[in-house]
Design a protein around this nucleic acid. Sequence first.
DNA 1: CGGACTTGGTTGGTAATACGAACAGTTGTG
DNA 2: CACAACTGTTCGTATTACCAACCAAGTCCG
Lengths: 159, 159
Amino acid sequence: MVTTNEPVPGFTEALVRLAHLVQQVYGEVAREHDLTPQQAQLLCLLIGGPVGMTELTRALHLEKSSLTGLVDRAERRGLVARVRDSRDRRACLIELTGEGTRTAVLAHDGVTRQLETLAADLPAEHRELVASAIGGILAEHTSRTGRAWSAPGPHRQGG
Amino acid sequence: MVTTNEPVPGFTEALVRLAHLVQQVYGEVAREHDLTPQQAQLLCLLIGGPVGMTELTRALHLEKSSLTGLVDRAERRGLVARVRDSRDRRACLIELTGEGTRTAVLAHDGVTRQLETLAADLPAEHRELVASAIGGILAEHTSRTGRAWSAPGPHRQGG
DNA sequence: CGGACTTGGTTGGTAATACGAACAGTTGTG
DNA sequence: CACAACTGTTCGTATTACCAACCAAGTCCG
């Protein structure tokens, strides 16, 4: 009874284009603050509080070594700092500096405002529907990979 | 009584995450076919027919020089070819080769299938609604920048 | 305790991505 | 023809991203 065989062909197309648009917005906003899109993403991810490298590799879908470089450059620019984890002497948490926090918030707000502006014509109900639909897709993906983005919140350490 | 002032704060968050997910799917599929995400994107864009460099820079939001490199590498791999434009001797159209077409279709199908799978739980009506909502957002952005992606179809020569 | 194994992060080497500035060839215009 | 506008390339540089190899710290197990 499910009609998933021949849905709207434009649906995935729309998703892909939207992703592209978001990417573009991220790029523009990042540039306004003299950041690369990746750095902006990193900063926004750290707004919720310090995060460990391993957690970041999962959130950003990067290899460890790639992340090392990204954090290195961000650290060299004084945007983030590595702080040793008290419970695990090999691990380190990445933390926003003062300037990093300022920039991160500005960038995050910029992206949010841009997207909100673009979606201004969208009635609130539709907006909620889209949000929930996306939530479903994300949940489906999460259940498949068994990994989540771990939204801004306390890092749930298994122990 | 428009309620655009304090909408769902999770809306833009959802958009951003979705973009990330699509990006990831693109990356996975690309890798399955020994492509970089950018190459996959290029190939998918060419499925509709040959496209000029300038048009491609707009579609991919790249500088001319960046695109030259991307096309260079794709050409070196035998995926695309530069064909001279008969009407304009400085311009060239980028065209898929035989293998390029095969790969492009496979990659496009792969991405589509993945996304469809993830959205399988979404009822068709919601899907259409989401697609149209996204369409609205894209249209808004288009009207702001005055430029469109020029969906798969005949290249409209601006004249 | 002590070695095997795992985990967390860095280093080194390489390819791809992306930008800006400068350049060469065409086109169109006056 | 002179000149501006346009199309794509080349060059130099910074960033991104991967893999393999590595070191250091924690964990497991005998």
